[in-house]
Amino acid sequence: MGAGEPVLEARGVTRVLSGAIPVTLVEGIDLSIGRGEFAAITGPSGSGKSSLLYLLGLLDTPTSGSVLVEGEDTSRLTPADLARVRLEKLGFVFQFHFLLPEFTALDNVLIPMRKLARLSDREMRTRAQSLLVQLDLGDHARKRPDQLSGGQRQRVAIARALANEPRVVLADEPTGNLDSRNAQLVFDTFRDLAHRTGTTVVTVTHDEHLAAQTDRRVLLVDGKLVGSTEAAHPA
């Protein structure tokens, strides 16, 4: 199936929004994504792509079924424990960059590290700076988000997602607000990340052209998994 041992697994995951008329977002999803795999979740709008990503990212909890991160069942964890797993093992990139507008690019990248508090101040700064350099933002570390272009902001957001060396990066339509050149840049970064460092990347996209560049495509229709294909490995 995947490229290595499973890092992220869904077992019979169903999510129903309770209400006067209950809405089923996703139903009976079984999925296993391996280490270093670059996977795309695709499907028409309203098919539950993002809902599945939020469940895999522990931002939402399944109505039934369970999500396993590195083999650990997360269904019995408290909200504080889930936050801890997100902090240590997961990184998020959304369609909107969600950078803190008053903080510089560097300070935004530092936030997850400061919360984790595993490195010294100096080490954190060095690491944040090198992440920005890797993403070609070396000269923009001191700039605030409103001084950056859309593509640059999204790359700062990626650097922030990578701050604590996560096992998995989860991206929700990360290229939705970008032009095709920047979109390609983001996907190149993800692919490089997955193949070079072994970080698993799961991205939601409706862009067929980009989805075709991933290792694996997971197709959702009406909240159900209808196909999981190995995409052609680009050279």
């Binding site: 504080a80 936050a83 997100r86 240590e88 997961l90 969600f98 803190l100 936030i111 997850p112 919360k115």
Partner: peptide, 13 residues
């Protein structure tokens, strides 16, 4: 939005 991203990043309630 800041609150949302901080929480998704792993900051607790």
């Amino acid at each position: 939005r800041d609150i949302a991203i901080l929480k998704s990043m792993g900051l607790t309630e």
